[in-house]
Amino acid sequence: MLHYFIDAFAMIGMSYFMGFLFYGFYRQFNARVQRRWGPSIFQNFFDNMKFLFKTETIIHGPMFFFGPMIIFAGAVTTVLFVPYLKDSIWLQGFSQSGNMILIVYLLVVGPLGNALAVGSSGNPFGVMGVTRGLTRLMGLEVPFLLGLALVMVQHETASVHAIMAAQPDFAHWNLVTNPLAFLVMILPFMASQHASPFDVVGAPVEVYAGPRVEFSGRLLGILMTQNMMMTVAKLVLIADLFLGGATTIWELIAKTFALFLLTAAISTSFPRLRTEQTVDFFWKIPLGLGVISVIATIWFPWS
């Protein structure tokens, strides 16, 4: 029991720590690309703390308050169901009682809970943002899960542990043995991290619209925290599935950072697409590639 508690706290702490450092790095990376100095790498941590210690928070009824709590609970549950290390008793959380499909579904539980809060705020621009988010989800989930399903078919299991164990060295990484699956899911994966060009516009633009438009103070802090943790959980999941998992914390950081860097590089290079363009893109390019890989790896006997 005590082990579970320490382990859970370690996972939550680790996700938070990696989350703000990665996002801090992203801000600086973005700034350098745009020839600015950019803020310190700890800026996201400072911002987050500033929000979490605000004295005033405006709410619009009970559901508005519970939404961020649901999304936070969803994010932490996701973190605790992703195994962070392989061949270790640490940083496992409850991953033995879960599987890949469960994790993918847990990723969306929180956002849907928060959508209730946005709806109960009564701001039509917020709901517009939620609808855009759900529309984009509809686009990205199909190729994303198809890519993961190719891996599940390859290893005949949905258990993340078993898939990690089947990739002992570089030659057995799914990135190497099943590159098509990786290509199918990588762009939707970037979209699931709210990275440009597939992001949904947030609040801070000229005509502000988006899911966060009504949130302020500590609730905004909660939303920011869960976003950072969720990003790390997704990166770890993909590192587990395609990059062979990690045996040490440093290896984990290196692999997730490599994935994050890829996302960041693409995200700084391309401007945002409109939501329907995003969906159409996902249903044409990654899904088309997915269909090709299904035909190539499953239908034909040479596989």
Partner: peptide, 18 residues
């Protein structure tokens, strides 16, 4: 045979964190 999940664990973790 493809793995499964534990309803108590999922519900319990979610409710506890919430």
């Amino acid at each position: 045979s493809y793995g499964g999940y534990d309803g108590i664990a999922v519900m319990g973790v979610f409710a506890t964190i919430f």
